[in-house]
Each structure stands twice: as C-alpha cells, then as structure tokens.
Nucleic acid binder design. Sequence first.
DNA 1: GTTTTGACGGTCT
DNA 2: TAGACCGCCAAAA
Length: 112
Amino acid sequence: MKDNSYFKKVFRVTEAIPMGRVTNYGAIADFLALGSARMVGWALNKCEHLSIPAHRVVNRKGELSGRNQFPTPTLMQELLENEGVEIINNKIVDFEKHFWHPGNDLNQEDFE
DNA sequence: GTTTTGACGGTCT
DNA sequence: TAGACCGCCAAAA
C-alpha cells in the first residue's frame, strides 16, 4: 500500500499479531525494513492512544520493557496472561515458544 | 538549528 | 559468558 508511514506499518503488523503470540521490535523492524528497532518502539510509544495490542510487542529478551507506558504497569502482564502467555517478573516465559514472526503469516508486499 | 533521548538490536571487547 | 559501545531514525527541548 502507499502508506509509507513506518508507524502505520508498525500498527498494522502489531494488530496482526495472533492472540497468544508475541513478537519483538527487531522482528517488526526487519520485516518492515525500517532499519532500526528503535523506530518500532518509538512508533508504538505513539500508539498508546490507539486500539492495537501493543502488549504483544516486547524486546528481544522477552521483557515487557514498554509496560511503563501502559495505564498501569501490570496491565500489559495481565493482558498477556489472559491470552495464555505466562509472565514472570515482567518477562515472557518460553518467549521463543510464543514468538511470532510477521513474515510467518503476513506478506511484505502487503506492507509496501 | 543543534543536542539529547527513546517501549532496541547487533557486534565488539 | 557478560558488559559496553555504536547505529538506526525521529521527535522534543
């Protein structure tokens, strides 16, 4: 699509994350060829007012680094636990197991 | 217009 | 194996 706004792309990918799955900034940045995971984090920071499951996006360590931006720090953990993702000490258990790569179900052509 | 910071990642030491 | 540094792009001060 013609919408080259990186943040818009991040939003689309983020809301495309399946329930019970999580992804990291690097995967989104790589999939969208943003060139830097910081752009993803920055975009998501702006998205807090939008209705996208940003709680499914974490850093490469599986840590809920963005929980601080949520209305309540525990909200992010609660949402993930509600989706079947176990969280301990603000970190995703078996992160690799719940990890979801955008290119797995999405097409890059759809995000041009 | 310049400098600092940011929900990060990869590489080097 | 662990810690530190640099790079990426954009927004706010």
